[in-house]
Amino acid sequence: MTDSRRAPELPEVIYTPESRIKHPVEMLRDMWRDILAARELGWRLTVRDISAQYRQTFLGYFWAFVPALVTGATLSIASRNRVVDFGEADIPYTAYVIIGMVLWQTFMESMTLQIQAMSKAREMLAKINFPREALILSGLGQTLFNFGIKILLLAATFVWFDLSVPATILLAPFALVLLLVLGTGLGVLLAPLGGLYEDVGRGIIFSAMALLIVTPVVFVPPDGGTFAEIVALNPITPLLVTTRDLMTTGTMTHPLGFFLASLFAVLLLLAAWTAYRLAMPIIIERMSA
């Protein structure tokens, strides 16, 4: 043995069957190290996926606006003609729906992009050891970019409907970030399972519908009744409603709900990230078996 000659600066990695969760301090240190190491790759992957995405379309950014515009238009026609009743909003209903849909879409993207990033990176994951956090960062980066484009639509909505801009709009980004933390947390939690079973991806399509029904995106939060309770218990509700309220009315309707949901979102993301790391070698083993 010539251990004494070993250069001291060489990093040492040890692989054993034992779960890393048994050494939480080291695990947290590794998580911190990897998230720092993942920034550059995360950025590159974000740029890669966005440029590839927009290079192959003719209409380009237009597609980012379509869902919110179409939903806004159809629902406002339906509502005006009394086909459905979505309640009375404090701002014009069409604007309410467009803003709600933009936030909803952004939330959903923050979740689904995590699952997509994982399945798109299958080959890379199976063959190269890179900091896996880069995938999480790239999903988040793309969500933010797509939201950035939709700010144009939001601005146009404000101008068109002549909405007043409250000072609290400066706080809206913080609320939005918490909404994304919740979405990313859910996505990161589900992504490893999605790597094993396709059921996860399919299930999300259905649950998206169900979630949309219990989240006040196109309707105004109801008062009283079982449905109102379900809507209120849904952690997406306070985050989304608060973001919209801070942008439009400037009032915060559910401060306690917002606080609890934010706390839940942050803890969920941390737990999901931990699980993601622990799960990765097992998922890779089964994905490529």
Binding site: R6, L10, P11, E12, V13, I14, Y15, T16, P17, R48, D49, A52, R55, Q56, E123, M124, L125, A126, K127, I128, N129, P281, I282, I284, E285
Partner: peptide
């Protein structure tokens, strides 16, 4: 470090480079 061993122990010192899967991460577009 892609998958975990079920038994035993591995120690690796220094930067690991693998010349496998050339061109992984390429986006065709």
């Amino acid at each position: 470090g892609l998958i975990k061993p079920d038994r035993g122990k591995i120690i690796i010192r220094g930067r690991v480079g693998a010349l496998i899967a050339l061109g992984t991460g390429f986006n065709p577009i």
